[in-house]
Computed example of a mutant assay.
Amino acid sequence: MLDHVFTDAIGALRDAMESAFLERQAFEERFQADVLLGDLTWETSYSLPGEGNPPRTRADITLDWPTWAQTAYRSWYIGEELDEPPRIEIEIVMRVQRLATLPKVTAILDVLPEESTTIGEETLQRSSPTVETVFDAELEPDEYAVEVSYEGSYDLEEEVLADGSVLDSHFSSMGGWIASTLVRLGDIKLDYLPPGDEDS
């Protein structure tokens, strides 16, 4: 792995997920670079163990490292004074899927807090829900999913840039928060389709 504060953040978040015994969806993980703009993006998904494939509930996590943040990080690295600390943009989408009937969105929002646990001194703010409908060949509704995202950013102050291990403590609560949120979503009485690996 590259020795870089962004990859340190990825490692800290992975450790938090593993400490909470969450199951990584290996085929959902991506590390991408925008060849035109230079932005870096890391995407991954986690679910509770034993949920089937695909799981009933899932957390989709995205970390963005924009080009301007890389410029700020490079300036700090070569000893220049920071005008603005580099920032990682964070989005966590809580997804309930494999639904056989359209649920009451209020039942889902009722168990979701308005903001995440703290990441350093920051929290992620909840956005409005999105409902997804999958149609069959006859254009009849076949499956539903509901997503609610939490969005925000994490400023990398000089103490974090100087010692990447600080990220471990700042991200440590995220695993437990995501796990407990997925448990609350899974406890809602909803009408689920069987897992895909049980359909055949």
Rank of each mutant, 00 (worst) to 15 (best):
M1R: 09
L190E: 03
T118W: 07
W65Y: 15
E151I: 14
R184Q: 11
S47Q: 13
P113D: 15
E159Y: 13
P141W: 04
I178C: 10
Y77R: 09
E89H: 06
T57E: 08
Y144Q: 04
W177R: 13
G79A: 05
E147D: 15
T41Q: 11
V96M: 11
L109G: 01
I90C: 02
P86M: 04
E29L: 14
E132F: 10
T62W: 03
A162N: 13
E147W: 03
D3C: 00
Y150N: 12
V93P: 00
A20T: 00
G186V: 01
M1P: 05
E91H: 02
F6N: 07
D83W: 04
P129E: 12
D136Q: 02
R95F: 02
V131T: 15
L161C: 08
T118H: 10
A12S: 15
P195Y: 02
Y150L: 12
Q25Y: 12
E28D: 15
G196H: 08
A9E: 05
P86R: 06
T101I: 02
S165A: 11
R14Y: 01
L99N: 03
E84A: 11
W42S: 14
Y77D: 06
L124F: 12
A162Y: 03
G120Y: 07
K189D: 10
G176F: 06
S172Y: 11
S116E: 12
T130P: 02
Q32I: 12
M1K: 09
E140R: 08
W42M: 10
T7R: 01
K189Y: 00
E89W: 06
D60H: 11
E122D: 09
Y150I: 12
E121P: 00
L63A: 04
P85G: 10
E147L: 13
D110H: 00
P66H: 02
L190W: 05
D197P: 00
P49F: 01
V131N: 01
S116V: 04
D83I: 09
P194Q: 07
R184M: 10
S172L: 06
A16C: 09
S153K: 04
Q32F: 07
E158G: 01
L37S: 12
P85N: 09
E157P: 00
P103S: 07
L161G: 06
L190R: 05
R30F: 15
L185T: 10
G196P: 00
T133I: 15
P86V: 09
V5P: 03
L37I: 10
S165R: 07
S172Q: 15
A12P: 13
I78E: 14
E29D: 14
P195N: 07
D15W: 04
I178F: 13
V166L: 10
I188E: 05
S169L: 12
A72N: 01
L193H: 05
D34W: 08
G52P: 04
L102H: 07
R98D: 05
L48W: 06
